[in-house]
Design a protein around this nucleic acid. Structure first.
Ligand SMILES: [Mn+2]
Ligand SMILES: [Mn+2]
Ligand SMILES: [Mn+2]
Ligand SMILES: [Mn+2]
Lengths: 141, 141
DNA sequence: TACTTGGCGTAGCCATTGCTATATTTCCCC
DNA sequence: GGGGAAATATAGCAATGGCTACGCCAAGTA
């Protein structure tokens, strides 16, 4: 089982490869706001656990296991960002909150949040009504 | 700033005192599924950080700071359980998921989830419609 | 081809939070 | 009041995941 930190690295690596074609230690470090030495250490662990194949100083590629997991993690992250956006959380808080909670939700919960999002997508007036509730609650104080 | 673990202990202690009038090491340990020695250690840290006043072998009381925080933590936990219940997450998953995510949501997000819950409470047919979306999505597979 | 330099790797440290093993205290019962 | 069990405390270890300091590699330039 992957730890939260391992998930963060895998997600980042998947995204970098997806967008730029490769994932370098320094890019991973910058994205996760950690030092390069921390990245090296974690990459070695992810290699040991067969999420990727790593060649010192040269580069890395994701194994099928790593690709599958990486994609799931990226999708999960995006779903949760959409969710928080939909219920009206301020932009500035979204990324940090998602970074934290994404590792702690069962796939059951993820599916239910997906459904909730679809519920609001199918009829945009529902989101309007939600914002009305918000305004009423704010007016009470 | 309290760590996730510190929050778990504080929440538990607050709840025990709220329900039984006192919080003993063994009760805290049982509730959090950790060993008593871990509880002793954490209580000493919470004392040092002025969340509670601890007398070895005798007992503890929450400071005003600890009470205020404890109540907020308990309320937050309950809110999140209600939220997952409302969107249809299976009972068996709720406690564990909440235990994980509760420490990683900004108060902005918490407020928005509160609003969402109020939205569903005000018109129960909304929850019915959510369940209809769920059934439709399930039928697609 | 040799030097330089930026990127990367390693070693060793620290904080956190759990554990086990063992010591100490308290409390209850005789 | 004393003995023993249950509760609690302490010591020391381990895993995780950061960090700093420093050493190494290799791509590019002179
Ligand atoms: Mn994350
Ligand atoms: Mn993420
Ligand atoms: Mn928790
Ligand atoms: Mn909780």
């Amino acid at each position: 089982m992957a730890t939260p930190s391992m998930e963060d690295y895998l997600e980042r690596i998947y995204k970098l490869i997806d967008e730029k074609g490769y994932a370098r230690v320094s890019d991973i470090a910058e994205g996760l706001e950690v030092h390069p030495s921390s990245v090296t250490k974690m990459i070695q662990k992810l290699d040991k656990d067969n999420y990727l194949i790593y060649e010192k100083y040269r580069g890395l590629i994701l194994t099928p296991k790593g690709k599958k997991m990486g994609k799931r993690l990226m999708d999960r992250h995006e779903l949760l960002e959409n969710f928080l956006t939909t219920i009206g959380v301020h932009e500035d808080n979204i990324y940090k909150d998602v970074e934290g909670i994404e590792h702690h939700l069962s796939w059951d919960s993820i599916t239910c949040i997906e459904t909730l999002l679809e519920y609001f997508r199918r009829d945009p007036s529902r989101a309007d009504e939600l914002m009305n509730v918000r305004k009423e609650l704010e007016a009470e104080n």
